[in-house]
Every structure is written in structure tokens, then in C-alpha cells.
Design a protein around this nucleic acid. Sequence first.
DNA 1: CATTGTTATATCAGATATGATATAAGCACA
DNA 2: TGTGCTTATATCATATCTGATATAACAATG
Lengths: 104, 104
Amino acid sequence: MKPVKKEYLESKGWKIGTVSDFLELTSEETIFVEIKLALSRSLKDRRQKMMTQAELASKIGSSQPRIAKAENGDDSVSIELLIRAMLATGATPKDIGQIIASVG
Amino acid sequence: MKPVKKEYLESKGWKIGTVSDFLELTSEETIFVEIKLALSRSLKDRRQKMMTQAELASKIGSSQPRIAKAENGDDSVSIELLIRAMLATGATPKDIGQIIASVG
DNA sequence: CATTGTTATATCAGATATGATATAAGCACA
DNA sequence: TGTGCTTATATCATATCTGATATAACAATG
């Protein structure tokens, strides 16, 4: 769902819950968001085992707050950033592919 | 590689070839670009079997020229768009995951 | 408690990706 | 050739994502 749409709904008093229980998402939008969330979770797991958010941020020329957002599924974070961050934790294309493939 | 960097080099007379033979890419940058290219190629294959660029574009609220760029590996195209387009061709997370996993 | 290290939240100006549009180029076929 | 259909290239205003910064919240340890 586009941020615009979400903000509009929220301004009208809607509460936005988890993605899956919001029925007006097309299945493609749902899948897309689920892919991002799966990457988020995996990023957090991997990163926590080896470094701080600040360290990871500096590896990819980003900032600690942005890594925090990435790990928390903030939707201002793109898949681009999630993947760049994953790669910086040493994740291989195979690792990343498996995470995405596991989204069902 | 950031567009800025590429443009700078080109302005200095450098010719930019394929990504892999440009040695100053970090391995992570290389992998990232290769993931995008793999998605591009697969998108083109899938889309050609079932619809025109214009049709796919309208499915995802995009435009025919942007799908052309996506299929041609233009680097103004993000992974976001590539994945949204793939999903619109009916690709599953498993399909997408396999493509990414196959990048070596 | 205070300090230190880490992560979360908020804001913002600037960078980048976007869809729209115009138009060219290619391609099949009459 | 020319007509229709499809894809490629170029440009642009605007939406979106970005890293930076400030600062709050939290956790562990002295």
C-alpha cells in the first residue's frame, strides 16, 4: 500500500493493523510487504550476532537510525536498503533467495 | 555503484562496461547489480510469454517505458519495481527467491 | 543513582526513483 | 510502401527514500 493511501486512511480515523488483516491490499501488495518483513527479521537476527546497528550502518554508508527502521519493518525502508544491509552482514544471494522463497 | 560515481567517471572519459569487469565495485555492489540483472532477464522472459509491456505497466500502475527500462537493466530501476513487476506476471516468492539464489 | 553503550523515534533537506508524456525505432504484414 | 502494433529512448515534475542529526528510551554495570 502506498504511504499516501495509508496516511489518507489514518486521517479518516482508520487504525492500520498488521498487513495481512487489512483486506484491501491486493495479494501482490501483501506478498510484497511480507517479503520486506521477512528480510527485516532476518536482517535483525544476522546483525545482532555480529555487530551493532551503528557498525552495520557504517559498512553501507548509512546511519544507525536507518538500520533500526530497517530491522523494525518501517515502511520508509526500501527492499534496496534491506538487501544492501543483508549483503553487508555476509548474506549470500542464496541466503537472501531462501528468505524470499520462504514467504508464503 | 552510485549513479553519481558512474557519471563522474564517464565525464572523465571512462567507458563503463559490464558490471563484473569494472574492478572497483565492491563484491557487494557487484552482487547487488547482478541480482537486479537476473530479475530483469527473468521479468522479460515471463512477461513476453503473456502480455505486452503496456499491459504489464497498467497492472502495476506504471508505464510502458518504465517496463522497457526494467527489462533492459537500466539502473534507474529499483529492485522494488522489478519485484512488483515480477509479482504482476504471477511470479511467486518462491520463483523470485530462486532467481536471486541463483546469482553467483 | 550515574555512566556508558545501544537502539528507537522524529524531523528534514537533498538525492534518487517514479509515472507521464512525447517521440523514435523496430517489426510484421498487406 | 505504409499502416498498426510493440518496444526503446529522452525529458521532466513530483513522490519517495535517503543519510544526517538530535534526542529519547532502554539496558547493563559500576
